[in-house]
């Protein structure tokens, strides 16, 4: 019973709202700090993507310079992610995850796209390393991946899978542009690769979330690539 409680007026101990204000201030500060880093990630990502998008207008054989330039930009991104990792690790991972999740997807997308292009360079043999696994992406970005219980900074499988959907979208565009570049072989490689990925996505039981919504685009992109292959084979242009 609080009748003998010392605070004379009313129900509220001032400490209650003071505590809340302290927590709100701390939270605002953390968000500010993370927001700044995420903005830096956005900038770096735009740089990387503008380099990688040259692949649409440069023949596969001449991509080496582009890839190494992109690689430098990605290394800078790894440094920024390092900062994010440092700040984010002080807090429960999922508390602020939504602030950077999009940028982690983009960073992963840059890596898997780079890897795909790189694996199709002439000095590379065949299908090896076509798809970077989540572990390989994590190694490049220097973050742990797919943790189940340990509460530290990492890349989630959702982020990785979403980046693969972006990859499919990008490759569909590349299939079209390959033909423009006079490369009739690459659409076939893209077709095979994307079909394999599509088959992978089909085994997932997707619920109503962002992964589900975005994965709807896969089938349209598969079809778009099929159309390119169909057009080529109809005209006997398939090498």
């Amino acid at each position: 019973m609080a009748s003998s409680d010392s605070t004379p007026k009313g129900m509220i101990t001032p400490a209650i709202f003071e505590h809340l204000q302290t927590k709100l201030d701390e939270d605002a500060q953390v968000r500010e700090e993370i927001r700044n880093i995420v903005q830096a990630m956005e900038r770096q990502d735009r740089t990387t993507m503008s380099i990688l998008s040259r692949a649409h207008s440069i023949p596969q054989a001449d991509l080496a310079g582009t890839l190494s330039e992109a690689s430098e930009s990605m290394n800078k991104q790894v440094e920024v992610i390092g900062k994010l990792k440092e700040v984010a690790s002080k807090h429960p991972y999922y508390r602020y995850n939504s602030m950077w999740s999009r940028e982690m997807q983009n960073a992963s997308f840059a890596v898997v796209l780079w890897a795909w292009l790189h694996s199709h360079m002439s000095d590379h043999n065949g299908q090896k390393g076509e798809l970077f696994t989540i572990e390989e992406v994590g190694k490049i970005l220097q973050v742990p991946v797919s943790l189940k219980t340990q509460d530290v900074f990492h890349m989630t499988i959702e982020e990785y899978l979403l980046s693969l959907i972006s990859l499919i979208e990008e490759l569909a565009r590349l299939a079209v542009n390959s033909v423009t570049l006079g490369d009739y072989h690459r659409p076939l490689e893209i077709s095979r690769f994307v079909k394999d990925l599509h088959a992978g996505f089909q085994v997932l039981n997707l619920k109503n979330d962002s992964l589900r919504r975005r994965s709807d685009s896969i089938k349209y992109n598969v079809k778009k690539i099929e159309d390119v292959v169909y057009d080529l084979s109809l005209r006997n242009l398939v090498p």
Partner: peptide, 18 residues
């Protein structure tokens, strides 16, 4: 598609996690 996708094993892991 007839040839089993080389990524199937990976995606099956993803499936069980999801």
């Amino acid at each position: 598609p007839t040839p089993v996708s080389p990524f199937m094993a990976v995606f099956e892991t993803f499936r069980s996690e999801l």
